[in-house]
Amino acid sequence: MRLSYPTNVKIVKLPCSGRVDVVHLLKAFEDGADGVYVAGCLEGDCHYQVGNLRAKKRVAYVKDILDKIGIGGERVAMYNLSAGQGPRFAEIAREMSEKIKQLGPTPLRKSGGSAKGVKLTPGTTKEEAA
């Protein structure tokens, strides 16, 4: 559908959001990401049955850690959408970028530089739909 969204969103492909590990999310912040979000299937529609529910728990756990270490839990998020929801995909990308821009660069980053966003997504067609 070729719907425009901000260029600072980059996608890392995974077989299922259930493969997202707490370590992957934390490492992204350690490397200087300003924000990370996980895009999984709609709840109840996971191709692997429950992967997205596992991811949801892990994202919540990472949120808690980020809060505790002063990076801020709002920099990580979990979204659920189907491969048929291209407009929603673009909307989420805008929504998350906007939120991160408001929060400013991660305290871990030296200074300046543009906002860096990473998105972990299962290897489905969601990003193709946008």
């Binding site: 490492k27 992204a28 200087g32």
Partner: peptide
């Protein structure tokens, strides 16, 4: 993680 690392090269 190497993908994320490559993306954020030099950010920190």
């Amino acid at each position: 993680t190497v993908e994320v690392h490559a993306l954020l090269e030099g950010a920190v």
